[in-house]
Design a protein around this nucleic acid. Structure first.
Length: 252
DNA sequence: GCGACAG
DNA sequence: ATCTTGTCGC
C-alpha cells in the first residue's frame, strides 16, 4: 500500500466537501431562533484547538458550554490530541473536526443534559471556497446548529480585502452593525459584524448549519462581551491555560 | 515569479 | 495557530 500524493488527497477532500455541502440547512430550524429574545435558548457551545509552540501535531481540543443569556460556564472539556492532517487553507475541517466531534461525543455520554443547542466555531461556515467551511462540517456531522465566526477575512468568491472593504468597515459605528459579504454570483455568503462597541475590527459571521444568516449574526452579537463571542473566547482561553499548566515552556 | 493563505 | 513587551486609553 502506498500513500496517496497530497494532490490526490486534496481532490478527495474537495469532493467530500461538495457532497456534504448538499446537507447544509441554511434556515432556522429551532423555535428559539425565531424569538426576538431567543427565549428557549439555554445553552451555547464553543470549540477551539490550541497548539504547543512549534508543534504541528499536538494540540488541546476544547469544548465549553455556557448558559444563555448569562454566558456562565456550565461545562468544559480539555483533551490532548495528535493531529494527522496538515493545515491547508480551505480544508481546516479535515484537520480539526474529528477531535471536536469526539468532544461532543464525550459530552453526550457523560452529561447529555448539557448538550449545547448551538455551537460557535472558530472559522468560517458557508463563507468558504466551496461554501463548506469548518462550521458547516461540524454542524452537518454533528447535527447541531452551528455558527462560523472568523477573526480574519478569507478572500473568497470575489470578496476582497481591499480599500472598498476597509471603507465598509469604517461605516460600522456601534456593536451589532454589519454589512453583507457578497459573492461574485450575488449570493450573501456571510456578514462582517462589529461585534461590540469597543472593537472597530469586525468578525466574519457565516452560517454553519440549521440557522439563518440573520439569526446567526444577531445571536453572535448577543454572545459578545468582547470582540470574539464568549463561547469561542472561553474555549480559546481555557485550552491555552491547559497547555500552560501541563506543558510549561522549557527554560534556558 | 508574486501574492494569498479561516486556524 | 504561534513568534512577542510595552504601551496607549478608559
Amino acid at each position: 500500500m502506498s500513500a496517496s500524493p497530497p494532490e490526490d488527497l486534496v481532490k478527495h477532500w474537495e469532493s467530500e466537501q461538495e457532497r456534504l455541502r448538499q446537507q447544509v440547512v441554511e434556515d432556522d430550524t429551532e423555535d428559539w431562533q425565531r424569538r426576538p429574545d431567543f427565549l428557549g435558548l439555554q445553552r451555547v457551545g464553543g470549540v477551539d484547538l490550541s497548539f504547543i509552540k512549534g508543534d504541528e501535531v499536538n494540540a488541546c481540543a476544547q469544548l465549553v458550554v455556557l448558559s444563555y443569556p448569562d454566558l456562565e460556564l456550565l461545562y468544559e472539556d480539555s483533551q490532548m490530541v495528535a493531529l494527522t492532517a496538515p493545515y491547508i487553507a480551505g480544508f481546516l475541517a479535515f484537520r480539526e473536526t474529528p477531535f471536536l466531534l469526539e468532544a461532543l461525543q464525550r459530552l453526550k455520554l457523560t452529561r447529555p443534559e448539557l448538550m449545547p443547542q448551538v455551537v460557535f466555531v472558530d472559522g468560517n461556515g458557508l463563507f468558504h471556497y466551496r461554501e463548506f467551511g469548518l462550521a458547516c462540517h461540524l454542524g452537518v456531522l454533528s447535527g447541531i446548529p452551528s455558527v462560523g465566526v472568523a477573526k480574519n477575512l478569507l478572500q473568497v468568491q470575489g470578496v476582497y480585502k481591499n480599500e472598498e472593504h476597509q471603507s465598509q468597515i469604517a461605516v460600522l459605528q456601534t456593536g451589532g452593525e454589519s454589512f453583507p459579504l457578497i459573492s461574485a454570483s450575488g449570493k450573501v455568503l456571510g456578514k462582517a459584524l462589529r461585534s461590540c462597541d469597543k472593537s472597530s475590527k469586525p468578525v466574519y459571521v457565516s452560517v454553519g448549519h440549521r440557522i439563518s444568516l440573520d439569526t446567526a449574526v444577531r445571536l453572535t452579537h448577543s454572545c459578545c462581551r468582547y470582540r470574539v463571542p464568549e463561547p469561542i473566547r472561553q474555549a480559546d482561553v481555557r485550552s491555552r491555560e491547559y497547555l500552560r499548566v501541563h506543558f510549561p515552556a522549557t527554560q534556558t
